[in-house]
């Protein structure tokens, strides 16, 4: 086993284990922290694929900004086990059913994908480096890129409008 493989398996175990902990943690704050661990593991995978920019941006945007806001809201809501209201039993069944259906859809979608034959490019390929990524984004994909930035701007304006409403 090379170092890359060891790292790959370590990160995979970390990502899956943390993802399971997100679901099984009783305390929502713990769930958020495990989710941050998942993001770190996934960023590690990106670095193994030589996509450094994606790895760092994943950390900055998801682990550094969005999860902070999640944590913020959960801390302010003060969710404790004692204050949790009794939920309807049918709600629980519906949750199980929808989760099972989602798994079915994912299995069906991935069955035909034949990902097993395609090896990911490890440490080679430099499309993930910021120099190449920037060139592609601003030449070939400039229109979708700008449209998504307009989408962000409108979301921001919308948030301000909602926040202003008394």
């Amino acid at each position: 086993m090379s170092i890359t493989e060891i790292l790959f398996w370590f990160l995979t175990a970390l990502a899956l284990g943390s993802a399971l902990m997100v679901v099984f943690s009783k305390n929502p704050v713990h769930s958020v922290l495990w989710l941050i661990a998942v993001f770190f593991a996934i960023s590690g995978h990106y670095i193994l694929l030589n996509a450094q920019f994606l790895a760092v941006v994943n950390l900055i945007v998801y682990a550094g900004a969005i999860m902070v806001l999640f944590l913020f809201v959960i801390m302010l809501m003060n969710l404790n086990a004692e204050t949790e209201p009794r939920k309807n039993r049918w709600l629980m069944y519906a949750g199980w059913l929808s989760g099972f259906l989602l798994m079915l859809v994912i299995v069906a979608a991935l069955k035909e994908a034949e990902t097993r034959d395609q090896l990911a490019l490890m440490k080679g390929g430099d499309i993930g480096l910021i120099k190449h990524l920037g060139r592609v984004l601003f030449s070939e994909y400039v229109l979708p890129f700008e449209i998504s930035s307009v989408l962000f701007l409108s979301a921001m304006v919308g948030a301000v409008v909602i926040g202003k409403k008394d």
Binding site: I36, Q52, F53, V56, L59, I60, G64, V68, L71, K131
Partner: peptide, 19 residues
């Protein structure tokens, strides 16, 4: 080759210690 972004990423993690 993403040194500045790395610093930015670590700085954005700094908030967790306090929180």
């Amino acid at each position: 080759n993403i040194g500045v972004l790395y610093i930015f990423g670590v700085v954005s993690m700094g908030v967790y210690g306090i929180m």
